[in-house]
Design a protein around this nucleic acid. Structure first.
Lengths: 152, 152
DNA sequence: CCCATATCGATGCATTTGCATCTATATGGG
DNA sequence: CCCATATAGATGCAAATGCATCGATATGGG
């Protein structure tokens, strides 16, 4: 199983991907910080919980969706709960676990973060590429995902 | 200056970019760790220093190139020096500063990291997209850079 | 020449992250 | 029913990171 060294094209694309993604995250985090808002990870979790609705989600369900480690989810949820943005409910048929549900102020916080986050996406992506280019980019990135997204 | 909310295409592309870049970094860092090698940031710095040659680089020159904060560079260089991978030389015409030069074992470490890193790039990018697609991806990402890359 | 200000790089302290492990409950084999 | 093992989630401790500041030298205006 000899692994060959990467093509120049792969290296360039890799380097761009690394640099651009870090720049975009950094700029967006800066914008949130400047607005007195919590980090992106908070948005991700609140977003998932908002989509999940009243039924809420189990912490382990959040782990795969938000690409955070188990202990990261555990600690983030503790902070969100302390801030009253989510509530933890015991789950009847599994004494180990809990269900996490977003609260009204959690939804409000999500909207607040989105005002900045969405503007950042517009500025950093929407304004720089056309809809067709954005679709092309998404399709190419989808092929790099694990598991890859099939395009048709 | 009202910022409008992002198009669905921008949001999808953004989400993919965030997810894919984090996945690729994570997989690569895991591979390095499994090989008993230091993190990617070490490679970045060693790479820049190797390219700079015998003249070396000033720490502040590294800051922009590797997208690390000033204190991050300072601390990373301290570790690299402790491991004998770089050496710090006083610079004659500026008593505040220093020049950092890669050592032979630094070059060796760089090669060692690259054996894993390069294989990871091949596996995660080179094997998944054609050369044309990689170029297309790099071009699109270049437009998202700050400052953006002009394509011709 | 002196002083105000800017730049280079390091560092103390608080927060965050990663790793390993822990407690508690669940599950399945005998 | 009991025990071995697995899974859900929390946490102690160490390392990494972020922030503010510091000491040291450089620079420029008067």
């Amino acid at each position: 199983m000899t692994k060959k060294s990467p093509s120049p094209e792969a290296v360039t694309a890799w380097a761009r991907l690394m640099r651009v993604s870090r720049q975009l995250v950094e700029k967006t985090e800066d914008a949130l910080k400047a607005g007195g808002l919590p980090p992106l990870a908070w948005y991700d979790v609140l977003h998932e919980l908002a989509e999940a609705g009243e039924g809420g989600l189990r912490p382990f369900e959040l782990i795969d969706r938000v690409l955070l480690a188990q202990y990261g989810v555990s600690r983030l949820l503790a902070k969100l709960e302390a801030d009253g943005l989510v509530e933890k409910l015991p789950v009847s048929d599994d004494g180990r676990g809990q269900t996490v549900r977003i609260t009204p102020s959690g939804r409000e916080m999500r909207r607040g973060i989105w005002a900045i986050y969405g503007a950042s996406i517009t500025e950093l992506m929407g304004d720089r590429l056309s809809a067709e280019e954005l679709n092309a980019l998404a399709a190419l990135l989808g092929r790099l995902r694990h598991p890859p997204i099939e395009n048709h």
